[in-house]
Amino acid sequence: MRYLGFILLLGLFSYQPGPKFPSKLSEYGLFEGELKNQLPHSGVTPYELISPLFSDYAHKLRFVQLPSGKSVAYNPDSVFQFPVGTRIAKTFYYPMDERKPNGSRRLMETRILSHEPTGWVALPYIWNEEQTEAYLEVAGGTSLVEFKNQQGKKQQVNYVVPNVNQCKGCHERDGKMTPIGPSARQMNASMQFAHGNENQLDYWSRTNQMRDVATSRPQFVSYIDESASLNERVKAYLDINCAHCHNPKGPAKSSGLFLDYRYYGTTAYGMMKSPVAAGRGSGGLQYDIVAGKPAESILHYRMNSHDPGVMMPELGRSIVHQEGVALIREWIKSLN
C-alpha cells in the first residue's frame, strides 16, 4: 500500500500537460543561488501588487520572465497582455513569526503561469519539507502549517494547494486561462529592487520590458491603508479578491454579481441585489448589500464564513480574513 502511493506520485511527476513541463521548479532556471532564497536570475523581474488577493495570510513573492527581447504593452484598464513565452512565478510562504517578516519562513508552493502558444497554463509546484526543491503536483495537496501571527499568537492553517483545474476556477475569462494580478492599477507603485526603490512601471519602461507607458496612470489604493478613503479601499479589495470570478466574463457571471471596481455602486455590484442561486450561502438574508446594515448583507455573511458551502471566495482560503471582513463591515455601515 505504501509503495502504491509512492509509485503513483512517480506517475504524476511524469505527467506532461501538452508541451514538456519540468517536474522540478529548479529546472526553470528562474532563480540563482539556493532555490529557497528566491533570488531572481537576470531577466526575471520581481513585482508587487498594491492590493493583493488574500490567501489564508500567506505571503507571496512574484516574478515575471519575459521571453528574451520581448516586451509587454502598457494598458490602463486590464491585466497586461504578456507575450507568448512569458512565465509568471508566484511563491506562497509563511514567516514563522509574522512580526519578523525577514526571519525564517516556510515556502509552501510556487505556481508557474506559463504562456504557451495554445494559451496560459497553470502549474502548482509544492515545496518539500527540506525546502530544497518544489515538485509539480497537478492534483494539488494540503499541508498543515503553524506560525505566529501579528499578535504573537500561534495560528494554524490547513494550507491547500489547488489542483490545475482549480487554478482555472479563478484564472478564467471567457473560458480561457489568464493572469489576474499584474495590471497598471495594481503595479503603479514603488517597490524595492536590488538597485533601490523605484516605481514598478517606470522601471519596466526604463528597462524596455514595457512599451507605451503613460505618464498619467491609474492606481489602486492599498486596502490596508487606513488613511485612504473607505470607498477606494473597498473597490481595491473586492476587485482583487472577487472580480476575477465576479465579472461579466468570469466563472461567476451566472450570478449577475459583478465586483469589478467599474461596477461600484450599481445593482450588479450587489446594492439591494437579490441572490440567484446562493442557496444556503444567502444565510437567510435577502440582499447582497443592504446600505448601513452589514448584518443583513450576504456579501459580509459569506466573507465571514469558512464553511466550504457558504464562504466566498470559494477557493484559496480556509480561514476568514478578519481585516477584510472588518473593512467591508465598516464600508456597508457607512452607506446610506
Partner: peptide
C-alpha cells in the same frame, strides 16, 4: 473541506 460543490465540470 474544500470546494463549493461535489463535482464541478467546466
Amino acid at each position: 473541506k474544500t470546494g463549493a460543490e461535489g463535482i464541478k465540470i467546466t
